Computed example of a mutant assay.
Amino acid sequence: MHLLFATSIVPDGALASGYEIANAAIIAALRRAGARVTVIGFTWPGKAAADPENTVVLGAIDVRTESASALQKLAWVGKATLSGLTFASVKLRAVSEDEVQAALEQAGPFDGYVLNSVQFAGAFEKLFEDKPSIFVAHNVEHLSARENAAAAGGIFQRLLFRREARLLKIVEERLCRRARFVFTLAEEDRAALGVASDDRSAVLPLVTGATAPARNGPRRIDCDAALIGTWTWQPNRIGLDWFLGRVVPHLRPGFRIRIAGHMPSGVTSAHPGVEFVGRVPDARAFVRGAAVIPLISTAGSGVQLKTIETFELGLPSVATSRSLRGIDHRPDNCIVTDDPAGFARALEAAAADIKDVDGGAFHRQQVKALDVAIRHGLEKLGAVRQEVLA
């Protein structure tokens, strides 16, 4: 079975974000199940596809809103308004439908499509209606946009997110209706998308790599707690604001917290132990240097890849309940609480008595369940293909 994996950004091997980690895990699982997978999409500027022989690159593009100029943002808003597309999808209209169609014809024929998230599929939706498809919903995007609107500081941003939420709901419903099968990354997302039946959807448990991270002897502890993330992504920013504003004030002054990643303007903390360290050369080494990992998601949908990585590394953690969405197996050294004061107390207790576990068992469980779910979806796609051929 030859599948086209249609995605906004093709894998470049860097695995710099949760989205890219998830894509790599899903593509690898499809290939383990016996499918031939060709990926189509864009690269980041200056990056090359990790698997060029099985990748169709439509060009290089930077879709990050925070790094775009004011003129570029206005151009995207205007183009979205005129086209009726979402803001997220219109960024990918750097090439025409005819150019994408020509690329598909050159790379095909295909037995079916894997539409990876709503952005690329929404930008070129009509091109993927001629064959059966699987839709991969990384998040329930319209719910995330609704939460972003509620948290937005300015009226323009609030109106933009509300427009996104309205249009995304329509597109997500259409993609789910047309798809032969839907993969989500969290159990609750199946119901939120209206595809809770086992005949219509399955959850994909994810991993951050083909093998479990190696444990290289005892850890050197550099701080009490460490966080790393893409804080310019609004759901992550909402969690960070909750942590800094409601949890950190309950921590003793000597509690040391290091926060890595690009920080949006306006993020500060009066706590003397909080240090913003920016970009770090090795994210895994950075979190391994902390006594405990705070998992602080309070918004969004889908799965938290930072939670999965923490569990694979066997590190102690304190987590909100939203941080555990999409996770069936919680290690013994993970404490769950949504109470800010209780969260702070749990962090201090975990940092005072560090308890690492073997993350290999968690990784093996995730891979096994991922492969089962992928095979189930491919069986559904194969069944509809046989119906078409008959």
Rank of each mutant, 00 (worst) to 15 (best):
A88N: 08
K73F: 00
V100W: 04
S67I: 12
V95K: 08
F87A: 10
Q101L: 13
L74T: 08
S69M: 05
V77S: 11
A107H: 01
L85A: 10
Q72L: 13
T81V: 13
K91C: 11
G108N: 00
W76T: 14
V100I: 06
S69N: 06
Q101E: 10
A68R: 04
L92I: 02
K91V: 09
R93G: 00
A94I: 02
A70I: 07
V95R: 07
L104C: 03
V90R: 10
T86K: 10
R93S: 06
V95C: 01
S83D: 11
V95Y: 06
S67G: 11
A103M: 04
A94G: 08
F87Q: 12
Q106V: 03
K79W: 02
L92P: 09
Q106R: 07
L82R: 15
G84L: 14
E66F: 12
L71M: 09
S69C: 07
A107N: 00
S89K: 11
K79L: 07
L85P: 03
S96P: 00
L82T: 13
E105K: 12
V90F: 05
V100Y: 01
D98Y: 06
L85V: 07
T86N: 08
K79P: 04
V90M: 11
T81W: 14
S69V: 07
F87R: 14
K73C: 00
R64S: 14
S69E: 07
L71V: 06
E97I: 01
E99G: 01
L74Q: 12
R64Y: 14
A102G: 09
L85F: 08
F87Y: 14
R93I: 04
E66C: 06
W76D: 14
V95E: 00
V100K: 05
L92T: 03
L82P: 11
A68P: 05
V90C: 11
L74A: 15
W76N: 15
V100G: 00
A94D: 02
S67A: 14
G108I: 01
S67P: 09
A102N: 09
A107T: 00
A94W: 01
K79T: 03
F87L: 15
A107Y: 03
V77Q: 08
V90Y: 04
L71E: 12
F87H: 13
A107C: 00
T86D: 07
S69D: 07
L71F: 03
F87M: 14
L92K: 06
R64M: 14
L82N: 11
L104K: 06
S89W: 10
L85S: 09
S89P: 10
A70E: 06
W76R: 15
S67D: 09
Q106G: 04
A70T: 09
V90S: 09
R93F: 05
A107E: 01
